[in-house]
Design a protein around this nucleic acid. Structure first.
Length: 635
RNA sequence: GCCGACGUAGCUCAAUGGUAGAGCAGCUGAUUUGUAAUCAGCAGGUUGGGGGUUCGAAUCCCUUCGUCGGCUCCA
């Protein structure tokens, strides 16, 4: 008997029955040493697996999708193997491949410290050198439990217990190390060429804070030393864009022990802030929004009415005024509800889109604070939209359009998530179902590419989240659209319908920037501190060559100020090169060098921070050009 | 909050139990300079705070605050 195998180039080949993936793999690697694994009918597959008739076989190397994951997953097994050799009593958690690397969780008798990573790396190198063959074993549940009982691996047994009764359980074995694992893996340990353990961190077992905290070892692996080095260098380069570093260097903001999580914005940061809010107001007026301001501190009764007292108290700050309990607002919604409720509404008034640049305070856990990205006091570009039930779809669609238009101006790439009902939630399952379906419908109709995020909704409703990435590729939620059938109930909001009866409006909470602080952090990293001219704190630096040209320089400066540009004259007693260097380091978009020649001709010598020396130009031309750049928000 | 690491001048970093130091920034003076750093001088620190060990602590121990990397949480 023989079987038909379709290879990736489309050719069909006949092999004897019983031919395994490994046979084909060996045949193929003889000509291409880069190959790591095979896919059978599109599925990652173990090499020992025999092929069936009319299989379609593809080969993957490190750069074909599952390749890097398989490679790094094997590296994580080598890590666990090394740890078990060095600390035989350590208990194994889980050890998957992740984006750009892998990790493995362990429980040690005595916690290890980051210095121990070096020793573990050494042992890993030994295991790699030993070229341990990696073998798959299959067994039933009973056998698997027995095996891990013998090896005293309680976490593995817990994982097996959660698998369906009749599953065939696979384990991978190398030398005396065995791990519960679906696979597949590389054929032997020697194939892991270049790796590095990068970090040690705590991680709760199965991500639940009620569970014990294990120690997680992070690492990364690449097919050769050069690519590993390139990756590590890239990380170093990315760190130069870190908003905390640039924020200090560019004098944008500061953080102080006196106010952990409460950032201080300096003049330069405040200029960016104001440009962002000016633009935001213009867009929102155009999109039919009103704007309000509500108090920071409000009475306890309001928070009881809104449900925050029951659902959000742990994150709130409190105060007492004349013996009464007050809370500092952690969200803007209750204030907006009161504004809505302050008068009668006709169905003709709706939708009412009420925006607020609202400062909120939340007691975030100390370990989660992160520069401007994660703070305890922040300004949300909030809006609450009160509408008729049949307006929901068009309103959500409108917000998605506004979001996209605004993000595009910054040149952001974003990822969209639909978050569903969390464990701790208000309202009936039916309401949640209805609300979630509505959001999903709009996303599908708009053709938005989104990902489902089960259980991550707000306590009052499901939401669509917009995520942006920081310099190290960490994802941060910014925009969000949250559907809310709860607040209108709680606050007994009504409108008078066509029929003359009172009806319940629907509310959407939404932010576009998310928080001003987080947005500014992301913008700093996105632009590497070189803000587009419309946002740059200083737009033009005027650099006189000698003090003979100071007077002319000041005249040029006044002219630019009249045109509403942010400009200064560097009158210090320094050489031109020195002043240029400083303006470059401060990422000022335009430098105007004025010396005797310019005084004579009445022009300016233009230098751009990115394009360098642009030669002489008339001041009017330059102003026209820069003003267009500002107006059009050219990146 | 939990796990691990770190905290020395405004910034970046030296000093491993024996007199706290450098570069940049700052100030003063000289220099009048043409597209990424002119020269010289001066000043700057109860080594995050508190406690302890020691003849002696930046250094060792305890504690507390903050920061960084994760986990959990979230804009």
């Amino acid at each position: 008997m023989s079987i038909k195998v379709k290879l990736e180039n489309g050719a069909e080949a006949i092999y004897p029955e019983g031919t395994t993936c490994f046979d084909l793999y060996k045949e193929k690697t003889a000509e291409n040493k880069e190959l790591l694994a095979v896919l059978v009918n599109g599925k990652e597959c173990d090499l020992a697996e025999p092929l069936t008739d009319s299989s379609k076989v593809e080969f993957v190397d490190f750069d074909t999708p599952p390749g890097a994951d398989i490679y790094r997953h094997t590296a994580s097994h080598v890590l666990a193997h090394a740890v078990k050799r060095l600390y035989p009593k350590a208990k194994l958690g889980i050890g998957p491949a992740i984006e750009n690397g892998f990790y493995y969780d362990f429980e040690f008798d005595e916690p290890i410290s980051s210095d121990d990573l070096e020793v573990i790396e050494k042992e890993m190198k030994k295991i790699i050198k030993e070229r341990q063959p990696i073998r798959r074993q299959e067994m039933n549940r009973q056998e698997a439990i027995k095996l891990f009982e013998e090896r005293d691996e309680p976490y593995k047994i817990e994982l097996i217990m959660d698998l369906p009764e009749d599953t065939v359980i696979s384990c991978y074995e190398q030398d005396d190390f065995i791990d519960l694992c679906a696979g597949p893996h590389l054929p032997n340990t020697r194939m892991v060429k270049a790796f590095k353990l990068t970090a040690l961190a705590g991680a709760y077992w199965r991500g639940d804070e009620r569970n014990p905290m294990l120690q997680r070892v992070y690492g990364t692996a690449f097919p050769d030393k050069e690519r590993l080095e390139d990756y590590l260098n890239m990380l170093e380069e990315a760190k130069k864009r870190d908003h905390r570093k640039l924020g200090r260097e560019l004098d944008l903001f500061s953080l102080h022990e006196e106010g952990p999580g409460f950032p201080f914005f300096h003049n330069n940061g405040t200029i960016i802030w104001q440009e962002l809010t000016d633009y935001w107001r213009a867009e929102h007026r155009r999109a039919g929004y009103e704007e309000i301001k509500t108090p920071l501190i409000l009475n306890r009764s309001l928070w009881e009415e809104s449900g925050h007292w029951d659902h959000y108290r742990d994150n709130m700050y409190f105060s007492k005024i004349d013996e009464d309990d007050y809370a500092i607002k952690p969200m803007n919604c209750p204030g907006a509800m009161l504004v809505y409720r302050s008068k009668m509404h006709s169905y003709r008034d709706l939708p009412r889109r009420i925006a607020e640049m609202g400062i909120v305070h939340r007691h975030e856990l100390s370990g989660t604070l992160h520069g401007l990205m994660r703070v305890r006091s922040f300004t949300q570009d909030d809006a609450h939209i009160f509408m008729l039930p049949d307006q929901v779809q068009s309103e959500v669609a409108g917000i998605i359009d506004l979001m996209d238009r605004i993000y595009r101006v910054f040149g952001f790439h974003y990822r969209v998530e639909l978050s569903t009902r969390p464990g701790k939630a208000m309202g009936t399952l039916e309401m949640w179902h209805k609300a979630t379906n509505l959001l999903e419908k709009v996303l599908l109709e708009k053709g938005v590419d989104y990902r489902l995020n089960e259980g991550d909704g707000a306590f009052y409703g499901p939401k669509i989240d917009f995520h942006l990435e920081d310099c190290l590729g960490r994802s941060w939620q910014c925009g969000t659209i949250q559907l809310d059938f709860q607040m209108p109930e709680k606050f007994d909001l009504t409108y008078v319908g066509e029929d003359g009866d009172k009806h319940r409006p629907v509310v959407i909470h939404r932010v576009i920037y998310g928080s001003m602080e987080r947005l500014i952090a992301l913008l700093i990293e996105h632009y590497g501190g070189a803000f587009p001219t419309w946002l740059a704190p200083t737009q033009v630096a005027i650099i006189p060559v000698t003090d003979r040209s100071h007077e002319y320089a000041r005249k040029v400066c006044d002219r630019l100020k009249d045109e509403n540009l942010r400009v200064f004259v560097d009158q210090r007693n320094e050489k031109v090169g020195y002043k240029i260097r400083e303006a470059q380091v401060n990422k000022v978009p335009y430098m105007l060098i004025v010396g005797d020649r310019e005084v004579e001709s009445g022009q300016v010598a233009v230098r751009h921070r990115g394009q360098g020396d642009l030669g002489s130009d008339d001041l009017d031309n330059l102003i026209k050009k820069v003003k267009i750049e500002v107006k059009e928000k050219i990146i």
